[in-house]
């Protein structure tokens, strides 16, 4: 028997999102403790990060969230070409995010600002903790962005094939929910790392 309880599927997806909130939440707890303990060192660490790149990435993800929401609306209205354009843009923006992140990490590595690196090893504990958290949190986040990009790519293919349409869009909606949550995590990571100083 074909069961299409959309509300149930949506509940399941939200339950999964709650686990993601708790997953990042553990790291947020760790961040909050160390920030409280090392206020000055965190400010110093924040100065090392490149605010324009962080702000750019923030805007990139916000725009991609808009694109995903617009894609869902397009599918609902049966506007296949618009949906494909929005989905493609969202995935592309996600890729841009990852490229910028890769660039940021590379520049930090080149400066010796990585665990075990020359510059970081010479800094005090709080500064090291800041960067440990930076890599842990942005790394975990980037992993999620990558998975999200893949999901959006799959959705693009399904829309293109006609497997996802106005009467059957669970996969797209749920991928969208995942993507928005990944955006929300970054909405918090941005001030926590780039606006400390």
């Amino acid at each position: 028997m074909e069961r299409t309880d959309a509300a149930g599927v949506r509940l399941g997806m939200w339950l999964f999102l709650y686990t993601e909130i708790m997953l990042f939440g553990g790291l947020f707890v760790l961040y909050s403790v160390y920030r409280h303990r090392y206020q000055a060192a965190f400010a110093a660490g924040g100065l090392e990060l490149e605010l324009p790149l962080g702000a750019l990435n923030t805007c990139v993800l916000l725009a991609s969230s808009f694109a995903v929401a617009a894609a869902v609306e397009s599918v609902r209205r049966g506007l296949k070409k618009a949906a494909l354009a929005f989905l493609g843009s969202a995935a592309l923006l996600g890729a841009v995010f990852l490229l910028v992140k890769y660039g940021e990490w590379s520049r930090k590595f080149a400066l010796g600002l990585y665990p075990g690196g020359a510059r970081l090893s010479a800094e005090p504990g709080g500064f090291k903790a800041f960067f440990g958290l930076y890599y842990a949190l942005t790394g975990l986040h980037a992993l999620h962005v990558s998975i999200g990009c893949l999901a959006l790519g799959v959705c693009w293919a399904l829309v293109w094939k006609g497997a996802v349409h106005g009467g059957r869009l669970n996969v797209l909606e749920n991928s969208g929910l995942y993507w928005h949550l990944v955006d929300i995590v970054w909405i918090f990571l941005f001030p926590l790392f780039y606006l400390v100083a």
């Binding site: 969230s65 929401a69 928005h180 955006d183 909405i187 918090f188």
Partner: peptide, 14 residues
Amino acid sequence: IAGLKSALVLVFFM
């Protein structure tokens, strides 16, 4: 402000 932004995403996008 981050909370406000998140609320917008939660209510209007999600």
